[in-house]
Amino acid sequence: MARQTCRTETSAALPTPALASSLPSLTGMRWAAAFVVFVYHVRNFGYFGGEGARIVDWAFGAGATGVSFFFILSGFVLAWSARPGEGAWLFWRRRLARIYPVPLVTALVALVLAFTVVPGLRPSGSTEAVSNLLLVSSWNHHWWHALNPVSWSLTCEAALYAVFPTVYAGLRRLSPRGLTALAMACTGAVILLPWVNSYFTLGWTLHSFPLARIPSSSSAQPSAAWSSSGSGAGWRRRPPWGPSSSAARRRQLRGVHSDRAGLSHTGGCAQ
């Protein structure tokens, strides 16, 4: 009976792998990207001059890439934190409650400014204004700066949310090789889109067109599948180039035997 108790207590005392529920390193990267985008916009307003302007141009002239990073990060976090049993409607309601209040308030502020001190914000008609409020304005390249000029990024984000439940359902059915192929295909689409847009004269404004932003966001979602330990996303797969499950199991068993040997030498169990 004592031996059984010892084995039970030993098993309970052994450390278990912690399931990651937060991504502090990515939070820091988000701050860095936001800073780059902020300075880029300040530079566009002509705030800096002389030698300072030259330095800022050199350091932050490509600041728009920070927005691209946000789309990639958003795709990763969505897949990492997704809830396997959650339906599409519940997911959409949660995302709407999370992001919509801010663009709604800023759009109303932009309307006030448009008819008072900043007439350049004035929409061409009610349809353009409504499209901005519904987060669909960037689907029309003439309206990508409609009403609240920076809301085009939220329009792209809304498109990502619209397709995510379907993408997520497909991701959960893919093998590690399938996930690798999907990541490569999305990356290839990002690279080829400028050529396709030019060759076929599509006339898309790629940086603000929602359909063109979906591949970059989706390219990070297989990475979340590989990286997640199961917290929230529910994946248990390993990347094809990572350590095999048998090797990981051998390491785990070695740790178990070491812990038990240590307990035996220190008299941690009743005999």
Rank of each mutant, 00 (worst) to 15 (best):
P165K: 06
P165D: 05
T166H: 14
Y168G: 00
A169M: 08
R173C: 07
R173M: 11
L174A: 10
L174W: 15
L174F: 15
P176I: 12
L179N: 03
L182F: 15
L182S: 04
L182E: 07
A183R: 02
A183G: 07
M184Q: 02
M184R: 08
T187K: 02
G188I: 03
G188Q: 02
A189I: 08
A189C: 12
L192H: 02
N197I: 09
N197Y: 11
G203Y: 14
W204R: 00
T205C: 02
H207V: 04
P210M: 01
P210V: 00
P210Q: 01
P210Y: 02
A212D: 09
R213M: 09
R213N: 06
P215F: 14
S216W: 12
S216D: 07
S217T: 06
S219P: 14
S219Q: 10
S219C: 14
A220L: 08
A220M: 13
P222W: 03
W226Q: 00
S227H: 14
S228P: 11
G230Y: 13
W235M: 00
R237V: 12
R237N: 07
P239N: 10
P243G: 07
S245I: 07
S245T: 08
A247H: 11
A247K: 04
A247V: 09
A248F: 11
A248Q: 13
R249S: 09
